[in-house]
Amino acid sequence: MQVHLVDGTYELFRQHFSKFNKDPDRGATRGVVASCLALIEQGATHVGVATDHVIESFRNEMWPAYKDGSGVDPHLKAQFPLVEDALRAFGFRVWAMVEQEADDALAAAARVAAADERVERAVICTPDKDLGQCVGGKVWQWDRRQDKWFDADGVQARLGVPPASVPDLLALVGDSADGFPGLPGWGATSAGAVLRRWRHLEDVPHDPLAWDAGVRGAATLNATLREHYDLALLFRDIATTRTDAEVGVVDDWRWAGPGPDAAAVAEALDAPQLLERAGRLTDRAGA
């Protein structure tokens, strides 16, 4: 068995800004539902979709400049509840996050799936580098747009560090999409070299003369790390996904076809083709 864990927030953004989207009020929602149905067409059986029902989360209390959705297109923001209702109507399990974020739900679901002996592979469907920290063993990451797959080795090839070090990497270099800056002077090359050698911030030697990772400017980088060490730990905590979200069990995520509200949703979206498509898939799967 495989399970597919979809980053619904990313999908909504991707569909909204697609050059093919001609309907700013409903087009992204139609696109996300179609994208999830495409997974079923490709053979997926168990699908969970995580969304940021409220863009702010507990992380905003940790760092006031953390993303708050203030720059999000109002047409897009208005579709978050719309897409959640549409996905549920079409038979998909939805985790609409309020206190935590969609990434936390995906991490929690990946943990649940990996612990289920029936699951051969848990696929996190997003290109988001943050989710690389969850990869390893049964858990893979899939960038569907580019059809690129990442196991643990793939994450290291992509980001320069192993999955377990991804939060440490983000702590040093920052994450502009999430609104925290990292430490001055630290870039992906220097951070990658240091973390490949020592894995985590607390293991980096205090004496730069002990650095044997081939990093230029070791003394300056080390001085910055020591000066802002507590801030780096805070950024790492912000970047670390939580795995305690309530996501249920794998059996809860099995797609069983559209529900009784699907027809009304399809009509509201002016998308009868979605209902027809879901009906064909239901008949095929015997759902």
Rank of each mutant, 00 (worst) to 15 (best):
T45C: 07
V47D: 08
V47P: 14
G48P: 14
V49R: 07
V49H: 07
V49N: 10
A50V: 13
T51G: 03
T51Q: 07
T51E: 05
D52R: 07
D52V: 09
D52Q: 08
D52G: 06
D52A: 07
H53Q: 12
H53N: 06
H53K: 10
V54G: 04
V54W: 15
I55T: 15
I55C: 09
E56P: 15
E56D: 08
E56I: 15
E56N: 12
E56Y: 11
S57W: 08
S57A: 09
F58H: 11
F58L: 14
F58V: 14
F58R: 12
R59T: 12
R59Q: 10
N60L: 14
E61R: 15
E61C: 06
M62W: 03
W63C: 13
P64Y: 05
P64L: 12
P64F: 09
A65W: 11
Y66E: 09
Y66L: 13
Y66W: 12
Y66K: 11
Y66T: 12
K67C: 06
K67R: 14
K67T: 05
D68R: 15
G69S: 10
G71R: 13
G71D: 06
G71S: 08
G71C: 03
V72L: 04
P74G: 02
P74D: 04
P74A: 01
P74V: 03
H75Y: 09
H75G: 01
L76V: 00
L76M: 01
L76I: 00
L76A: 02
L76H: 01
K77Q: 01
K77D: 01
K77E: 01
K77C: 00
A78V: 00
A78L: 00
A78I: 00
A78N: 02
Q79A: 01
Q79G: 00
F80A: 00
F80K: 01
P81K: 05
P81V: 03
P81N: 03
L82G: 02
L82P: 01
L82C: 01
L82V: 04
L82R: 12
V83Q: 04
V83G: 01
V83L: 02
E84C: 05
E84N: 07
D85R: 15
D85I: 10
A86T: 11
L87S: 10
L87M: 09
L87A: 06
L87E: 07
L87G: 06
R88Q: 15
A89Y: 06
A89Q: 12
A89S: 15
F90P: 10
F90R: 12
F90I: 09
F90H: 08
F90G: 05
F90N: 08
F90W: 05
G91A: 12
G91W: 10
G91Q: 12
G91L: 12
G91T: 13
G91M: 13
G91E: 10
F92Q: 04
F92P: 09
F92A: 04
R93A: 06
R93D: 00
R93L: 02
R93C: 04
R93V: 07
V94P: 02
W95H: 05
W95E: 03
W95D: 03
W95L: 03
